[in-house]
Computed example of a mutant assay.
Amino acid sequence: MPFNAKCGFTVEAWAADAVTMRGPFLDENTNGAGTMHGGFISSLIDSVATAVVIAGAERGDRRNPVTTSLTVHYLGAASSAVLATATCSRRGKAMCFVDIAVTDETGRPIATAMVSTLLR
């Protein structure tokens, strides 16, 4: 996806039940305090949520996941690359509900999130 490439997001693990993506720590991704910008982390969360919905889709399902709700709880500041791991807590016919945990490279919690996705 062009947006993911522009942000530098990379897939670290891909399975039907969980996807992990990495967000790099670069100067252009920081805030005024010199830590990773919350909007960058939120974008990574949205991207990994979409990825796990696609990863777990039934073969031949060509519907596009569209984020309908995204809630983030920031737990700490990141001063290194971050890893976001997404799992589907519920997968319905038209909606998927995704839980995301974001950590820094040492495993320290940075954020948790919940994303609702409509399949259309």
Rank of each mutant, 00 (worst) to 15 (best):
R22P: 03
T71W: 06
A5E: 15
V53H: 00
S116A: 10
R22E: 13
A94R: 12
R22G: 06
V19A: 02
L75D: 07
G60D: 14
A81I: 05
G32L: 14
I100A: 04
A101W: 09
V53F: 09
E12Y: 03
G39Y: 00
G34N: 01
A101N: 05
T30V: 08
E105R: 09
G107T: 09
D27C: 06
D46R: 00
A77P: 02
A101H: 10
P24K: 11
A81D: 14
D99L: 07
S79D: 11
R91S: 08
S89D: 08
I45F: 00
A111D: 06
E58A: 10
T117A: 13
S79G: 00
A13Y: 12
I41A: 01
V72H: 03
G107Q: 12
A113G: 01
F97P: 00
D61S: 02
C96P: 05
S116R: 02
M95W: 02
T30Q: 08
R62S: 12
N29E: 02
F97Y: 12
T87E: 15
F3C: 05
T112S: 04
S80I: 04
R62H: 11
G38C: 05
R59D: 15
R62G: 10
A51M: 08
P109M: 15
D104N: 00
V98R: 03
L70R: 11
F40T: 14
V19N: 04
G107F: 02
G23R: 05
V102E: 03
M1Q: 14
S42L: 07
A77E: 03
N4A: 12
V98A: 13
A81M: 02
R120Q: 12
F9Y: 04
T71S: 14
S43E: 03
W14F: 10
C7M: 15
D17T: 13
L44H: 07
A18C: 04
T85L: 07
R120N: 10
R62N: 08
F9R: 03
R90Y: 08
L26C: 08
T20W: 01
L118W: 04
R90T: 12
M21G: 05
R22M: 13
T20C: 10
A51Y: 05
S89W: 08
T85C: 11
D104K: 11
G23M: 09
E12N: 11
R63N: 09
A101R: 07
F40I: 11
A111C: 07
A113D: 09
H73C: 04
N29Y: 02
H37V: 08
A55C: 05
H37S: 05
A33R: 14
M1W: 15
T68R: 10
A15N: 10
L70E: 11
S47E: 07
V98Q: 11
G38S: 00
P109C: 13
R63V: 14
T30N: 00
V115Q: 12
L75A: 07
I54V: 14
N64A: 15
V102F: 00
V52H: 00
T103H: 02
F9N: 06
